[in-house]
Structure formats: structure tokens, C-alpha cells
């Protein structure tokens, strides 16, 4: 049982040499085995939260803490965070020319485990995971994300999640841009990981659509750089009905 705890997190980015505060005191705790959905309007800071947890150098932490079982995540380098068990499925996965998917996956697995995976098992695991995600085996020899369609990139992110087995996975709009079939395939992948152990999932999304396949335990409404309200799955239904107006107005009024 592990806990990821975010306390009063303040984050800013440099724009035209000026720091702009994007996250304004985020509080959120999640335990392994749980799935939390984070929903909020465009520009509210959801991706900023995801990147800040992963340690992207563009984001400056100006206050607050992030801890994984009490360990200070913010003091860790990007790769240390991953080795501590954090995973980010990116909204816009990056292309890495000349590095094949198979080399990339094997290198990542080796780095996470501290030793190279036994070749025969590993090859089989990769093949199975790819076939579960309906990815053509040819993808293994293609360069990472290069020329992948939007949907293929998202499947590739979930493939990594399945193979790298993190303690906590942040999925940043993994459902965006997927058609219904692809959404099911990706959701099944997330559910396999959830069923397989005690991963905690932070699911960032705009739409309740994916929440029908990946049932959240908790829903957070994210507005203007902080969690405006936290509730059960029914909160997602309310958002579907009425949008974010109630929350945005509340923030504006305060």
C-alpha cells in the first residue's frame, strides 16, 4: 500500500521572463488501488500538475510538497521519480528519432529494475502487451512515436504503463482524440493494470466518456490551478450535465 500526497502545491512557469503562477495550492492524496479522475476546463492547470509531479524542468515549484510514502518527490530528478514508481502518460508524447520502441522499452525496463530483463520473458511480455492493445508488432521496430497517429501514441503510452508497472500513473488526457473503439482498447489496458496489482491512477480528462470504462473512486474538479471540489463518481455526472460554470463562478467570486 502506497500513498501519493500533494500538499498546497504552488507552481509557476516563465512567460516572457515573468513567472506566472499556474498551480495555486493543490491538495490531493491518492492511495494505491484507487483511481481518481481530475476534470477541469482548458488551461486550468491539469497538465501542469501532471508535469510537475513528473519533474519537467519548465515548471518551477514555488511552494508545497509532493511525497510518495513520505519520500520527498520534489527532491528527486526526473528519472529518480520514475524509478520510485511514478509514471506519466503524456498528453503529447514526444518523438525520439532513431530510437526504436523495443530498444526504448528494454532500456527503460532495465533502468527501472536495475538489471536487464530476461530476454525470452521480456520479448513475450512485450508481444502480449502489444497484441492486447491491438498494436501491430511492427511498431516495436519503429522509432519512438515518430509518425505515430494520435491514437497510436496514446496506445504506446499505455503499453509502457503495462510493461513498466508503476506504483502511480498519471494519465493526462489519454482518452482525447480516440474513437470509441480505440477508447475501449486503451481503457481495457488501464483496467488490466488496475486489476493486476495496486497501482494508483490519476486520470486527467475532459470527458466522462472514459469514466464509463474506467470507473473512478474519486472525482476532483480542477479550476484555476487548484482542486475546487472533490466527490464521488456522481460528481462527474453533474459536470457532464452542467459543465464547470458553477465551479468557475465560485472561484471568480472568492
Amino acid at each position: 500500500m502506497a500513498t501519493l500526497e500533494i500538499r498546497d502545491l504552488h507552481v509557476s512557469v516563465e512567460t516572457d521572463g515573468e513567472p506566472t503562477e499556474i498551480l495555486r495550492g493543490v491538495d490531493l492524496s491518492i492511495e494505491s488501488g484507487q483511481t481518481h479522475a481530475i476534470m477541469g476546463p482548458n488551461g486550468s492547470g491539469k497538465s501542469t500538475l501532471a508535469y510537475s509531479i513528473a519533474g519537467h524542468p519548465k515548471y518551477t515549484i514555488t511552494g508545497g510538497t509532493v511525497t510518495l510514502d513520505g519520500e520527498d518527490v520534489l527532491a528527486m530528478s526526473v528519472d529518480e521519480r520514475a524509478r520510485a514508481g511514478l509514471f506519466l502518460a503524456m498528453q503529447y508524447p514526444v518523438e525520439v528519432p532513431g530510437v526504436t520502441v523495443s530498444n526504448f522499452l528494454r532500456t527503460a525496463k532495465t533502468a527501472l529494475d536495475g538489471e536487464a530483463p530476461a530476454l525470452r520473458h521480456w520479448v513475450k511480455d512485450v508481444r502480449t502487451a502489444m497484441s492486447d492493445l491491438k498494436m501491430d508488432p511492427a511498431f516495436a521496430e519503429r522509432n519512438v512515436n515518430e509518425g505515430f497517429s494520435g491514437g497510436e501514441k496514446k496506445r504506446h503510452e499505455i503499453l509502457q504503463m503495462e510493461l513498466l508497472k508503476p506504483k502511480f500513473a498519471v494519465l493526462d488526457e489519454t482518452d482525447s482524440g480516440l474513437d470509441v473503439d480505440a477508447l475501449k482498447i486503451v481503457s481495457d489496458g488501464v483496467n488490466r493494470v488496475r486489476a493486476g496489482g495496486d497501482v494508483g491512477v490519476l486520470l486527467i480528462t475532459h470527458y466522462t466518456r472514459i469514466l464509463r470504462y474506467v470507473r473512478p473512486d474519486v472525482v476532483h474538479v480542477f479550476v484555476a490551478g487548484r482542486v475546487a471540489e472533490t466527490g464521488g463518481p456522481e460528481l462527474a455526472d453533474e459536470l457532464e450535465e452542467n459543465g464547470y460554470d458553477r465551479f468557475v463562478q465560485a472561484v471568480a467570486a472568492s
Partner: peptide
């Protein structure tokens, strides 16, 4: 490309290894 580096490192790959991957990848074709 720092974004490439970030992507690789976010999967646990240490910085030096990630840099090598990117440079080798650059020359690969």
C-alpha cells in the same frame, strides 16, 4: 532536444543513458 530527454528520463532512464540514446538515434539513419 530537452523534451526528448525528459520523455526518456520520465521512464526511469538516467540522464547520461538518455543523452546517448538521443545522439545515437540522431546518427542512426
Amino acid at each position: 532536444d530537452d523534451e526528448q530527454l525528459f520523455y526518456l528520463r520520465s521512464r526511469g532512464i538516467p540522464e547520461e543513458v538518455a543523452r546517448r540514446l538521443v545522439v545515437r538515434g540522431f546518427f542512426a539513419d
